[in-house]
Nucleic acid binder design. Structure first.
Length: 272
DNA sequence: CCCGGAACCTGAAGGC
DNA sequence: TGCCTTCAGGTTCCGG
């Protein structure tokens, strides 16, 4: 599933491919992929525009255009942007962005959760997001401040994009394991040393994920169609029926707020 | 404001 | 063999 490291990888891979390119046509195989404006206006505002930049904010991809507009894409759970899909990925193509020189970006999404939009004011979409966890400004003090008023289970709070932007289900599990903290702990019950460990763990698991070009389980592909390797480095996330790499105890699986959650009961004790 | 659950989707996997 | 249920999870919406 695309989280911060996956979206960062897609951005890095696409950047040299799209920068300076002009959008020559848009194919919408499924109009529902356009969130706003209407499909017709969406096309009209993209046609003939040059892509002047590509950046990431949280799990959003922002294609800056040579107009006042920005094309924003969100892959949600099963979306991928492919530049040259191998035959086995040539299904579920919901849209195609045609560029000059016969280049194309295929938007593949089996589950139809992913969306695109064209907006003038990007703040309307990304304005309420929390801090980027890999930026300098994300300090243990800031994390402590963000958690202090929240009583919900820590794991649920870490997934709140308005608190911290970019963490998803897999990397939240990995960060909590790395920090040795139970996912069900009240978010505001962490001690100072625990906050420090969590802060360090969040940044480490995200950096490792980016180094490994994202995690491929079933539905994430890089623009080339390749898979990422971060999945192989996971210690608890999605490690059903495996044992904890630190202590050898079986890895636990629970449903927390409707999300599959993996952890080690011995290394991440619940002490409340 | 905070919290938690349902809805949106479709394919895979497991039970009977 | 085939039908039915459950599971997967990022985001949004809604009710308490």
């Amino acid at each position: 599933m695309p989280e911060l490291p996956e979206v960062e990888t897609v951005k890095n891979d696409l950047l040299p491919y799209v920068t300076g390119q002009t959008i020559t046509d848009i194919t919408l195989n499924w109009e529902g992929i356009v969130k706003q404006p209407s499909p017709d206006e969406f096309k009209k505002r993209l046609l003939g525009r040059k892509i002047t930049g590509l950046s990431r904010r949280a799990k959003y991809l922002l294609f800056k255009l040579d107009s006042d507009d920005t094309l924003i894409a969100h892959l949600r759970m099963t979306g991928s942007l492919l530049v040259d899909p191998p035959a086995e990925l040539n299904n579920y193509i919901r849209a195609v962005i045609h560029l000059n020189g016969d280049k194309k970006i295929y938007f593949r999404d089996p589950r139809k959760f992913a969306r695109m939009m064209v907006v003038q004011d990007v703040a309307q979409v990304i304005g309420k997001l929390g801090p980027e966890p890999l930026e300098e400004s994300f300090t243990p003090e800031l994390l402590s401040h963000l958690l202090e008023k929240r009583k919900a289970p820590l794991k649920a709070v870490l997934l709140d994009q308005e608190l911290i932007a970019g963490l998803g289900n897999m990397y939240a599990d990995e960060a909590l394991f790395e920090a040795g903290i139970n996912p069900m702990r009240c978010a505001n019950s962490l001690t100072k040393p625990e906050i420090k460990r969590l802060h360090k763990a969040i940044r480490e698991v995200l950096r490792l994920g980016i180094m490994n070009k994202g995690a491929s389980e079933v539905t994430y592909y890089r623009p080339s169609g390749e898979m990422g390797k971060a999945f192989e480095a996971f210690k608890v996330a999605h490690q059903r029926d495996k044992v904890c790499p630190k202590c050898g105890e079986p890895i636990q699986w629970i449903k927390l707020r409707g999300r599959g959650t993996y952890y080690c009961a011995k290394c991440q004790p619940n002490k409340q």
